[in-house]
């Protein structure tokens, strides 16, 4: 029993667990929107294309958030430019740009292996981040959380029916930009917990899981946030014992929850669906017992 409480005796563990839980929760809130709009891969592209910026920031000793922001901006500008000047499909452009940026990031890391730890960027290392980085993460998560509390319904209406949102006086352009700003900021922050390769999990899986459980957006967001924060909490906690595999553990926990829900969800689960089909066919064979 005492062994299980051991992680909480270390200051750095408490900070890491808190930061991971908080950013996991906010990413999960964002995931509720992202998976509904079919934008999941944009998150993936984003997380990969900020790697060179992070590497550069570490090389020159600047705050990593700044570097990430700058290279994310550059990547979206490049995607926009190619899209405007060619007939290539969006997925091809996204794939092209984000792998190029990711490759550039890896190349930069290999130039200066002492100042940047490639493992930290690609796989994340919440247990090893500095206090300043923890502070940046918590700040980003905190601001995003507050903004979402105030705007979640307006963003929902905007994404559900933009025309209607517009007619009731909602500034849909502003909200869309706001949403992507939050998404970028949280992706950058989450890089420290799970790494560039797995950030996509944090901003897709909790929402996708909650979608199978809920018929209302508000509920979906709450369920998603619970899944995101609980799995992040335990991921960070367990990694104390397993040393350094935080990202993998968090995402695996989320996948586990997803699989359970996929089969056992009361309304949209696989087993519920089979039961409904069975009931329907019985009703057809034997209408007398099943009728209302």
């Amino acid at each position: 029993m005492e062994d299980l409480l051991l992680p909480f005796q270390y200051d750095y563990m408490n900070k890491a667990i808190f930061a991971a839980t908080f950013i996991g929760a906010v990413c999960a809130m964002l995931s509720s929107y992202l998976m509904l709009k079919g934008w999941s891969l944009i998150g993936d592209a984003l997380s990969h294309s900020i790697v060179p910026g992070v590497a550069a920031a570490y090389m020159i000793g600047a705050p990593y958030v700044l570097g990430a922001f700058f290279s994310g901006l550059l990547a979206s500008a490049a995607m926009g430019f190619i899209k405007a000047k060619s007939n290539l499909r969006e997925d091809a452009i996204i794939g092209l740009i984000f792998t190029s940026f990711f490759a550039l990031g890896l190349f930069m890391v290999s130039l200066s292996p002492t100042s940047v730890n490639v493992k930290n960027i690609v796989l994340g290392n919440i247990l090893g981040v500095s206090d300043e980085d923890i502070f940046q993460m918590v700040l980003i998560a905190g601001i995003s959380f507050v903004v979402l509390i105030f705007t979640w319904k307006d963003i929902m209406v905007t994404f559900f029916d933009e025309n209607h949102a517009r007619t009731i006086g909602i500034n849909t352009k502003f909200l869309t930009i706001l949403f992507f700003t939050l998404l970028s900021a949280c992706t950058i922050a989450a890089l420290q917990t799970v790494g560039a390769l797995l950030v996509i999990g944090l901003i897709v899986t909790p929402g996708a899981t909650a979608y199978l459980l809920c018929d209302r957006f508000g509920q979906l967001m709450i369920v998603s946030t619970i899944i995101g924060s609980v799995t992040s909490f335990f991921g960070a906690y367990i990694s104390f014992f397993l040393d350094g595999a935080t990202g993998g553990i968090i995402i695996l926990l989320q996948t586990l929850v997803f699989i359970i829900v996929f089969f056992f969800a009361p309304k949209y689960g696989l087993i519920a669906a089979k039961r409904k089909i069975k009931q329907a066919s019985e009703l057809l064979r034997n209408p007398a017992n099943g009728g209302q």
């Binding site: 509904l36 307006d154 559900f160 209607h164 006086g169 018929d215 209302r216």
Partner: peptide, 24 residues
């Protein structure tokens, strides 16, 4: 809106959609 412009898989109840009319 036109039916094909609506995402019918969106997690909202009938009541929620009508309530959106009151948001303004």
């Amino acid at each position: 809106p036109q039916a094909e412009d609506v995402d019918w898989n969106f997690p909202v109840l009938v009541e929620d959609v009508v309530m959106m009319g009151r948001y303004g």
